[in-house]
């Protein structure tokens, strides 16, 4: 019963908003002001809108990175590490002096990013299937490994030099084409790709055989095995798919937004993907509105700090409370069916 689930989601969101309002009020901020500043700061100005949509493209992908493996019965908390490696891979391909014309260069960058993320996630999947290591802990540990590896790249072998904490800028041909640009602000086609991916994945899950296989393994691994499905392989593939999404998120950031890989890349948006995925009840197309909501929070965090003095870390409190509320309202099975 879909309506019931939407109502539950609304109830969860309202509860979270209520709890957050109490928290803000106790801390001396006005909940209404906070909401207003968030809305205005992210969607009120053209520059803000472009930034919010730009961040959304990344959040959609990191949300998909969590949602898809979850439908296969796995927790992919490794979106952050997969995103970092994807961004780094895209930056590496981006500086390669390939004399291609047209979109080939940035397409290669995106592919590199997706592949890097997919490989990293598949590692966790393999560890689970071959060695019995629970994917929650392996993906979390691998996040840290990826973080330090990427930091080594940024400050070591792939540094832009002169003490800059970033890699060299990618070539113009590797930058994603602009969808909209107004002066200095710019929105790339990443948002279109991300939305297309989300919708395509929902269709894929519902109407294709591999998609159904993934859902089957998530719903009942034993029955799937009896039906002849190699559930171990499906799980590894599901992790790889999720990792590819997260890697693409990193590639979108490198090729669409920042044009280089740098320290503190992505600002933790890999973790936001967890909240985005569950806010969407792990349904791929629903990750779009979910990511738009979360990116409003993320885009407005500095504005919040400037206008009402709310430290930008408060955004994490909001995310966490929302995630907790959804976890409580949806009990054990935070699932779309």
């Amino acid at each position: 019963m879909k309506i019931v689930r939407v109502l539950r989601l609304a109830a969860a969101a309202l509860c979270a908003l209520g709890a957050l309002s109490i928290f803000l009020w106790l801390a001396g901020y006005s909940p209404w002001e906070t909401a207003r500043v968030i809305a205005e700061g992210s969607w009120g100005t053209p520059a803000g809108r472009m930034q919010a949509l730009g961040k959304s493209s990344i959040l959609i992908m990191t949300g998909l990175a969590v949602a898809l493996p979850f439908r296969a019965g796995l927790f992919n908390i490794g979106g952050e590490g997969q995103m970092l490696l994807g961004g780094l891979a895209a930056a590496m391909v981006g500086v390669a002096p390939l004399a291609f014309s047209g979109p080939v260069h940035w397409i290669l960058c995106l592919i590199a990013g997706a592949a890097a993320g997919a490989a990293w996630a598949a590692l966790s999947g393999w560890l689970r299937e071959a060695r019995g290591v629970h994917e929650v802990i392996s993906t979390i540990l691998l996040n840290f490994v990826a973080l330090h590896f990427c930091n080594q790249a940024v400050f070591g072998w792939f540094s832009a030099g002169d003490g800059a904490s970033r890699t060299p800028y990618i070539l113009e041909s590797a930058v994603l084409p602009a969808l909209v640009s107004a002066g200095a602000a710019r929105l790339s086609w990443a948002i279109v790709f991300a939305c297309a991916a989300a919708i395509a994945l929902s269709i894929w899950l519902l109407f294709t055989r591999p998609g159904f296989t993934l859902l089957a393994v998530g719903a009942n691994p034993d029955a799937s095995r009896n039906a002849g499905i190699r559930d171990g392989r499906v799980r590894v593939a599901a992790m790889a798919l999720g990792g590819a999404c997260a890697g693409l998120a990193g590639a979108f950031e490198t090729c669409g937004l920042s044009r280089a890989f740098f320290a503190r890349f992505g600002g933790g948006m890999g973790f936001d993907g967890v909240a985005a995925a569950f806010l969407a009840l792990t349904e791929p197309w629903a990750v779009i509105p979910s990511a738009l909501t979360m990116s409003s929070l993320r885009t407005a965090d500095r504005t919040l700090q400037l206008e009402i003095g709310l430290p930008k870390e408060a955004v994490f409190i909001m995310e966490g409370v929302l995630l907790l509320s959804i976890a409580v309202f949806f009990r054990r099975r935070v699932r779309a069916e």
Binding site: F271, A275, E313, V315, I317, E319, G320
Partner: peptide
């Protein structure tokens, strides 16, 4: 996530 936000805040 809450702990990260709360401690920073």
């Amino acid at each position: 996530i809450i702990a990260l936000g709360l401690t920073g805040f």
